[in-house]
C-alpha cells in the first residue's frame, strides 16, 4: 500500500506544474484568482491549495470531517445547509466560511458527488459563480494517497454580495407550466426502478447512476454529450432536473448537463417529494413486477 501511494504521488506531481501554468494563464478578470471549470481535477486543486488561493468545502458529516479532510478544507455538512437554504442565509454561510466574491470554491463529498453538487448549486444560485465540484470523492482522494489533514480550519469572516441567479431555479408552478411548453424538458435523475414506479408526467429519466464513471463523479464531457444526444435532446433545450427529495441526485445531473454543453439547465430542488405533497399528478407504471428482478 505504501508503495502504491508513492507511485500515485509520483504520477501526479509532474502533471501539476504544467497544468498550473496553463490554468494561471487562462485566468482573466479576477487578478490572483483562477476561474474554475465545472469540475476541478485533483492536480488543479492541489496547486490551488498550495497557493492558498481556494476555499475547499467538505460537505460530509462533521465527524467525518474531523477524522480527516483535504488540506485547508472547511466543514459545511449538507444537512446544515438544508436547515435553511434561503439565499440570505447561504450568503451568511459563505461569509462565515471566509469566502469572498471571486474566490474559487471547490466542493467535495463522499457520496459520488451528489451532496457536493447540491451545495455547489446553492452557492452558484446565490451568486458565487466561481464554484466547482472536485472530480472525485474523498475516499478516492484518500485512496490515491493524496494529502489529508485532521486540523479544523476556520477563516476570517468575509464579505460576500447576494446576487440570486433565478435562471438556475425551478419551483413546482414553473415545472407544471414547463410540462406543456415546447423546448422545455423535465429530467428525473432517480434510479430506473423508482422512475418506473412513479414520476412527474412528461419527465424523462437520466438516472444519476449513468453520470459518473470509475474514479470520477462525472464522465468526460464528450461522453455525457453523446449519451444525452442519444436521447434526442436538442442542445438548446431548457432542462429542469429533479430527483426524490432535496435535489442532490438532480444536482449532480444539473452539472452533468452543464458539462455536456447544455447551458439552459434548472434545478427543482424540492423535487418529487414536494410535487407529491402538493398532490400533483404523477405517472405510474404498474404493468410489470420489475422490482422482483432486483437481487437486493
Amino acid at each position: 500500500m505504501r508503495g502504491l501511494k508513492k507511485a500515485a504521488k509520483a504520477k501526479v506531481k509532474p502533471k501539476i506544474k504544467a497544468r498550473a501554468v496553463k490554468v494561471a494563464k487562462k485566468a482573466k478578470g479576477a487578478p490572483g484568482f483562477v476561474r474554475l471549470p465545472i469540475v476541478c481535477d485533483a492536480d488543479l486543486l492541489r496547486t490551488l491549495v498550495r497557493k492558498k488561493s481556494v476555499r475547499v468545502v467538505d460537505v460530509r458529516r462533521a465527524e467525518d470531517y474531523k477524522a480527516g479532510h483535504i488540506p485547508t478544507a472547511v466543514s459545511l455538512p449538507l444537512a446544515r445547509l438544508l436547515e435553511n437554504d434561503s439565499p440570505e442565509r447561504v450568503v451568511q454561510i459563505l461569509e462565515e466560511l471566509g469566502i469572498t466574491e471571486k474566490m474559487p470554491v471547490v466542493v467535495y463529498d463522499d457520496t459520488f458527488g451528489a451532496l457536493a453538487a447540491r451545495v455547489a448549486w446553492t452557492f452558484q444560485y446565490v451568486g458565487h459563480t466561481n464554484t466547482a465540484l472536485l472530480e472525485m470523492t474523498f475516499s478516492q482522494w484518500k485512496g490515491l494517497g493524496l494529502e489529508v489533514e485532521a486540523k479544523e480550519n476556520t477563516f476570517k469572516r468575509a464579505k460576500h454580495p447576494l446576487s440570486v441567479n433565478k435562471e438556475m431555479y425551478a419551483d413546482a408552478p414553473y415545472v407544471e407550466a414547463a410540462q406543456s411548453q415546447q423546448g422545455k424538458l423535465l429530467v428525473d435523475s432517480r434510479e430506473r426502478l423508482n422512475f418506473l414506479t412513479e414520476h412527474i408526467p412528461t419527465a424523462r429519466n437520466i438516472p444519476y447512476t449513468m453520470l459518473g464513471s470509475n474514479g470520477s463523479i462525472l464522465r468526460k464531457a464528450d461522453e455525457l454529450k453523446r449519451m444525452i444526444e442519444n436521447r434526442g435532446i436538442p442542445q438548446d433545450s431548457e432542462i429542469i432536473t429533479y430527483c426524490g427529495s432535496v435535489g442532490t441526485l438532480s444536482g449532480l445531473a444539473y452539472y452533468a448537463l452543464k458539462l455536456a454543453g447544455y447551458n439552459n439547465v434548472k434545478l427543482y430542488p424540492k423535487s418529487f417529494k414536494e410535487w407529491k405533497s402538493l398532490g400533483k399528478p404523477k405517472d405510474e407504471f404498474k404493468e410489470a413486477n420489475y422490482w422482483d428482478l432486483s437481487a437486493e
Binding site: 434510479e191 430506473r192 426502478l193 438516472p207 447512476t209 449513468m210 464513471s213 470509475n214 420489475y290 428482478l293 432486483s294 437481487a295 437486493e296
Partner: peptide, 13 residues
C-alpha cells in the same frame, strides 16, 4: 456490474 448500475436496475440476470 458497471453497466447494470449505470443503465439498468443495478442487477444482472
Amino acid at each position: 456490474a458497471s453497466l447494470s448500475e449505470a443503465f439498468s436496475i443495478g442487477s444482472a440476470h
